[in-house]
Amino acid sequence: MSQTIHVAITRRVQKEHAEAFERDLAEFARRSLDEPGALGVHLLRPAPGSGSMEYGILRSFASEADREAFYRTDLYKDWLAKVEPMVEGKPIYRELGGLEAWFPHPRGASPPRWKMALLTWIAVWPVSMAVPAALVPLLGERLPRALAAAVIAAGIVVTLTWAVMPLLVKLAAPWLNPTNGDP
């Protein structure tokens, strides 16, 4: 049984190429989702006003084989060649596991586990109350209890994955990954 693979990639972009890089990265990310085994991609831009030019890319693959195949595609190789004049240095790749996949850090260090757990709890608690409150009236008694629970669980996962966690991680970035060495 294969396990989902999460890879965090960091690229440092030259300021004068930031707009073109973002445009090309968004297009590449969109097209890359059509590749076999590509499960998702999240783009992390530098915080406004930070002066940082580090961009993060979090990619998810269905398996190690899918990850390796993706990095051999013409799509990936062409994108690397296209952005080469826009970036400084080589990309930094880091495979992530567990909660680390939600909390990529541009310099490769994950936040402390207690911060990741606390932020995840802050996300899960209200979502686990709101999704059933919204879906139970719609589902009523139409579905068997186990199937209704599956629909509710899917609603929670979708809400956390595509809405709540990306927003919370973005909002909490200064706390999760302080740049001045504070805890």
Rank of each mutant, 00 (worst) to 15 (best):
T10E: 03
R12V: 07
V13K: 05
V13S: 01
Q14Y: 11
A18G: 06
E19V: 14
A20L: 11
A20T: 10
A20Q: 12
F21M: 04
R23P: 06
D24C: 03
D24K: 04
L25M: 12
L25N: 08
L25Y: 00
E27Q: 10
F28N: 03
F28A: 06
F28L: 07
A29V: 05
A29K: 06
R30K: 12
R30Q: 09
R31A: 14
S32F: 09
L33Q: 13
L33Y: 02
E35R: 06
E35M: 10
P36Q: 02
G37L: 11
G37M: 05
L39S: 01
G40C: 10
V41A: 09
V41L: 11
L44A: 09
L44F: 07
P46D: 02
A47G: 01
P48W: 04
P48A: 11
G49V: 02
S50V: 06
G51H: 04
M53P: 01
G56C: 09
G56A: 08
I57L: 05
L58N: 14
R59E: 15
S60E: 10
S60T: 12
F61P: 00
A62Q: 11
A62G: 07
S63I: 12
S63Q: 10
E64Q: 15
A65D: 15
A65H: 13
A65Q: 15
D66P: 00
R67Q: 08
E68T: 14
E68C: 14
A69N: 08
F70C: 03
F70I: 09
R72D: 14
T73D: 13
L75E: 03
L75P: 01
L75G: 07
K77P: 05
K77V: 05
K77D: 06
D78R: 07
D78W: 10
W79D: 01
W79A: 00
W79I: 06
W79E: 02
A81L: 08
